[in-house]
Amino acid sequence: MELVSDVSALFGRHMRHLARIPEKLLSVTLMPVAYVIVFGVLFGSAISVPGSDYRSYLMAGIFTQMMLTNVGNTALGVAGDLDNGVVDRFRSLPMSRSAVLIGRTLSDVALAVIACVAMAVVGYLIGWRVHQGIPKAIAGFGILLLLGYAMSWLGALIGLLARSAEAVNSIAFMLVMPLTFLSNAFIPLDGLPGWLRLLCEWNPVSAVVAACRELFGNTSTGTGKSALPVQYPIPLSLALIALLLAIVVPAAVGAYRKAAAR
């Protein structure tokens, strides 16, 4: 009960930020829209995939890419609070130990919801449709947001360990770039050399993208013969996200406890 009240107070703090920090508002509205237009329209018009139009095929990848940006968003926020002493103040209060990080990660997921809505609207305008019914589409967004939540916790851990905005930016970039591009987010993996294809297929991002494509009904008819995560993307993406959370959440809470010990 105390945890709920702490988290909701901190959630309110971050929602106020959304209204007061213009770049934060832009990053959940304009940036996702730009993603859809740049990747969807530009690439989507130039490339084709078997069994689907590339624009629709791309949407799941773009949604997933957006979820990965939570790593950097959360990490920067956490590092900022550490830097200006706000974390010290929180730690001197009789509040729940994990409330600060839960409030932060939940609010970053709330921002991801806004981003998803913006992207879905623009996606619809450029011709993206879901073909498996609304409940399945919602389930797809559920998996995306779970991924976003896990990425926020990963970001929280990075922010607590790296502490400075510069370090956070470069670590987040080096992590998110390969995760995004060594996956099926933007390209079908069929044409890749065997070893690279295996690597990409075991990338958890590929499982999430494949799960969303399946739930949205935007799949391509590939050559088959895929690794497990891409063959059974829904259970495996859930399992991989759960595994990631199981590792990152305790690590981040532990790092938070030690973070101010300097």
Binding site: S5, A9, G12, V86, R89, L93, M95
Partner: peptide
């Protein structure tokens, strides 16, 4: 009270105090 004012820059003075008050239960 630490060496630097540990406040949320984006919140108003009143909001800062209220937040800390709520966290103080």
């Amino acid at each position: 009270t630490g060496q630097y004012a540990a406040l949320d820059e984006r919140l108003t003075g009143r909001e800062n105090l209220q937040l800390i008050g709520v966290l103080h239960r």
